[in-house]
């Protein structure tokens, strides 16, 4: 049995089991995203034509804000009983742990998106005029972009005072190109006016670059004293 992959799998299974029993992150995220949908919807009350243009932005801003809730939980959970210190002294490769956390967050945010999408369609009267299947790569790559950097920056903000506020302050500026690609990709699929291919390629590039950077630097950040 390959050891790093086993560590990843065990940690991931543990996180999913914890979340399944407590449902802390997912409930908070769902309610938060729901509030964003409702508040934006009655603030703007857009027609179907307008909402095609703005929905991309609304959806992703809602998911970004909601994802921060789960991301803040990622490492804070390991502080109780010094679990994180135990990881630090254990011979387990740090990247296996990091990947487990990223997969876990990817699953949580993915579940959130699956549950929220019908609500968005309902409130904003959405119907894609472009190829709707392209929304799938945009969503998958975009979620990975948010989650991989989010998990990394959550590990950084864990070391600071007022860590819950620190995470968005670090994550949002770095996420601007990814967010731009998600929003424009979604908007061009919904309006069917432009091809979304450029944005998908950009997201894939962003994902590759920052996944490598995270794996390269995570051990340094975890062991920083």
């Amino acid at each position: 049995m390959n050891r790093p992959s086993k560590i990843t799998w065990v940690t991931l299974a543990k996180d999913i089991r914890l979340e399944w029993r407590s449902k802390d992150s997912i409930n908070a995220m769902l309610f938060f995203a729901l509030l964003v949908v409702v508040i934006f919807s009655f603030s703007f009350d857009p027609t179907a034509e307008e909402s095609r243009r703005i929905a991309g932005g609304l959806v992703w801003v809602a998911f970004l804000f909601a994802a921060v809730v789960a991301l803040n939980q990622t490492w804070a959970r390991e502080l109780r009983n010094q679990v994180l210190d135990a990881y630090r002294v254990s011979p387990a490769p740090p990247n296996a742990l990091f990947l487990a956390k990223v997969f876990g967050n990817f699953i949580f945010v993915g579940v959130l998106e699956l549950l929220m999408t019908p609500l968005f369609i309902m409130f904003y009267k959405l119907r894609a005029l472009g190829p709707a299947w392209e929304l799938l790569p945009v969503a998958a790559l975009g979620t990975w972009a948010l989650v991989v950097n989010g998990t990394f920056f959550a590990a950084i903000s864990l070391r600071t005072r007022s860590r819950e506020i620190m995470l968005p302050l670090l994550l949002f500026p770095i996420s601007i190109p990814a967010l731009l690609a998600m929003v424009n990709g979604t908007a061009s699929i919904l309006t069917g006016e432009d091809p979304a291919k450029f944005w998908i390629v950009l997201l894939a590039t962003y994902d590759v670059v920052f996944t490598i950077a995270c794996l390269f630097l995570f051990e340094t950040v975890l062991q920083a004293e």
Partner: peptide, 29 residues
């Protein structure tokens, strides 16, 4: 802000990691 809010000897490492991320981000923007 990160430098201001983190304390102790870990600040330089965390800040340096963020600087590398920033440098990767700008070409993508």
């Amino acid at each position: 802000v990160l430098r201001r809010f983190s304390s102790g000897g870990q600040t330089p490492v965390l800040a340096a990691a963020l600087a590398v991320f920033g440098a990767l981000d700008v070409p993508l923007v």
